[in-house]
């Protein structure tokens, strides 16, 4: 079996949750494998030491020039240090999406992205599960791993203990990483998202609207319902893309992470990027006219209805019930 590596995302001296999830995913590829974690950054000893608990070996590439992760630079370094035909795991997040497709070309390995489950391997074939059509259909995918593979794992999909007591050691690979100065793509800065008039991360009740609202003029009925419930209005990505509501009201991995008590999802299909922004297990109620919408798999209670008809009536009934 090929050697397995895991790319560790970290922040403020702590490995991301995906560090455990990638170890869990590696177990499903080969339960006996010794997995190597790879950490890029500047001053990453604390991160590396925490990882020795679950990884047999931790490769450290530590350089002031890596203070902010630039996928173009890190890809080049990985090509220098990874052995041929290895299996490379990374999260399917905004960094992994930047890094991995090109890495697979440079390593001459196939890439499978956004993997939600791994069924196992037989010989040189690895069988995994992915989703297509915004989660409305799943697929089994076979990958020929005779020349290794680059595999992006969906954050949150591989829950488990990972591995404990691995007693791993940290190996400094900085010297083997080659030139890590930035070249054709130069990082400038991160522009932090603006805070809007309502801070939805603090809301206890969120009335969240998606594509099912169809038209900007219809948003009025959502505001009225939110008012009747004493909650705030949030939304999914298409509403912000259409500029109907400000970015600060978007729930999801590319928007805000919210922790309400109650989340009412109206005309929202429930993509994993959207659901990834909801934490703290709120009570989720969903109204959607498509009975197959993924949101119904994730909600506590569901209603199949057209929100344009359902919402005004609900607002009225809530008013009467008070």
């Amino acid at each position: 079996m090929a050697q397995i590596f895991a790319y560790i995302v970290h922040k403020e001296g702590t490995p991301d949750d995906t560090a455990v999830e990638l170890r869990e995913a590696a177990k499903k590829i080969d339960s006996n494998a010794d997995v190597t974690a790879i950490v890029f950054g500047s001053g990453v000893d604390a991160v590396c030491n925490q990882l020795t608990e679950s990884y047999k070996e931790v490769w450290k590439i530590d350089n002031a020039g890596l203070a902010y992760p630039n996928a173009e630079v890190i890809r080049r370094a990985l090509v220098s240090i990874l052995p041929p035909d290895c299996i490379f795991l990374a999260p399917h997040d905004t960094f992994g999406m930047d890094l991995c497709p090109g890495l697979s070309i440079k390593l001459d390995s196939p890439q499978i992205s956004d993997v939600v489950d791994i069924e196992g391997s037989e010989g040189n074939t690895l069988k995994v599960v992915r989703q297509e059509f915004s989660g409305m259909a799943s697929t089994h995918v076979n990958c020929d791993i005779s020349n290794g593979a680059v595999i992006n794992i969906r954050p949150g999909s591989f829950q488990g203990e990972g591995v404990k007591g691995a007693g791993g050691q940290v190996v400094d690979k900085t010297g083997d990483a080659g030139d890590i100065s930035e070249s054709s793509r130069r990082y400038l800065e991160v522009v932090v998202a603006e805070v809007g008039d309502v801070d939805i991360t603090k809301s206890e009740i969120l009335v969240s609207v998606g594509r099912g609202i169809e038209d900007q003029d219809n948003l009025e009925i959502i505001h009225e319902l939110a008012e009747a419930m004493g909650g705030d209005v949030s939304c999914s990505r298409p509403i912000v893309d259409a500029k109907w509501l400000e970015k600060s009201r978007q729930v999801g991995t590319s928007g805000q992470t919210v922790k309400p008590k109650v989340y009412l999802a109206l005309g929202i299909s429930g993509s994993f990027q959207h659901m990834g922004g909801i934490k703290g297990s709120p009570f989720i109620a969903a109204v959607n006219k498509n009975p197959k919408a993924p949101i119904f798999q994730l909600a506590d209670v569901g209603v199949v209805a057209d929100i344009l008809e359902f919402v005004p009536e609900l607002t009225e009934k809530i008013g009467e019930s008070k």
Binding site: G231, V262, Q297, L298, V304, F310, L314
Partner: peptide, 29 residues
């Protein structure tokens, strides 16, 4: 998993049930 409990019946019944649940979970102030 189990998925959502789907509310069925007349519109009236669905709304009553939904409002009851929302109130119980602190979703209506």
């Amino acid at each position: 998993g189990e998925g959502a409990e789907m509310l069925e019946g007349s519109n009236e019944e669905i709304m009553e049930k939904l409002i009851e649940l929302l109130k119980a979970k602190g979703g209506i102030k």
